[in-house]
């Protein structure tokens, strides 16, 4: 019974994710993508990094590996799946969630802390928070601008599937608080099967010594 953190060539947040989960008492292990999902898997993390060197588009190649077919089936069966940063790009490329994360609006790599407003508490990923709560998580990406086809954002909002929006310290979702030009300040969403994709890094905000513990609530979705 373990959460599988899937490692691709170029993943680099995989060990952090395992350590963060174990800190919370959640059994987790690395899974090399070509080995497939472990039989006793209880959840999946698609970690951050630069899988396949970001060739073609960030996440595009990893999204077409056979293990993602397994992950899609598992997600449809109710398994919790979380894609963080490059994992979020992979998740969208693999249709675990709609839209795409593409080049930041000012073509810069943004590595900083961001404030996020919790937009729904009606998901396993956000039930640990209060609605409207402001949390602080780090980002580190060059391709985090959330883009979605016209009309589909309204569907996401109607279905209450926006998890977080970038905001300022007071919770205002203003343009100045949007680090990458994401549509409507969206930082994370859930797909139809409940798989979550988000650019900020919850696993980097689980230990007090490394800048806060606001990410713990997201990872608690993996507690049975």
């Amino acid at each position: 019974m373990t959460v599988a953190v899937i490692r691709f060539g170029g993943s680099n947040c995989d060990r952090d994710a395992v350590r963060a989960l174990r800190t919370l008492g959640i059994d987790a292990e690395l899974a090399w993508h070509a080995d497939g999902l472990p039989a006793d898997v209880t959840g999946v993390v698609l970690p951050g990094g630069f899988s396949y060197g970001d060739y073609l588009r960030a996440g595009a190649i990893a999204a077409r590996t056979p293990i993602l077919e397994e992950v899609r089936r598992a997600a449809a069966g109710g398994l919790p799946v979380l894609g963080v940063c490059n994992g979020a790009q992979i998740g969208c490329e693999a249709s675990l969630a709609p839209g795409a994360f593409t080049t930041n609006d000012r073509s810069r790599f943004r590595c900083e802390h961001t404030f996020l407003r919790v937009e729904t508490t009606d998901t396993p990923w956000t039930r640990a928070y209060e609605a409207g709560e402001i949390i602080e998580l780090p980002i580190a990406h060059a391709e985090g601008r959330f883009v979605i086809e016209p009309g589909r954002l309204e569907t996401l909002e109607r279905d209450d599937r926006v998890l977080f929006r970038y905001c300022d310290a007071d919770g205002r979702t203003i343009a100045a608080a949007n680090p990458n030009g994401s549509t409507d300040n969206v930082a994370g969403i859930v797909g139809k099967t409940g798989a979550a994709v988000m650019m900020p890094h919850p696993e980097r905000a689980t230990l007090p010594d490394t800048g806060g513990t606001d990410g713990r609530g997201i990872l608690r979705a993996f507690v049975n």
Binding site: L56, A60, P98, A100, I148, E149
Partner: peptide, 9 residues
């Protein structure tokens, strides 16, 4: 359709 282009973009 399956790889080279992303229909969202």
């Amino acid at each position: 359709e399956r790889l080279l282009a992303n229909p969202t973009l």
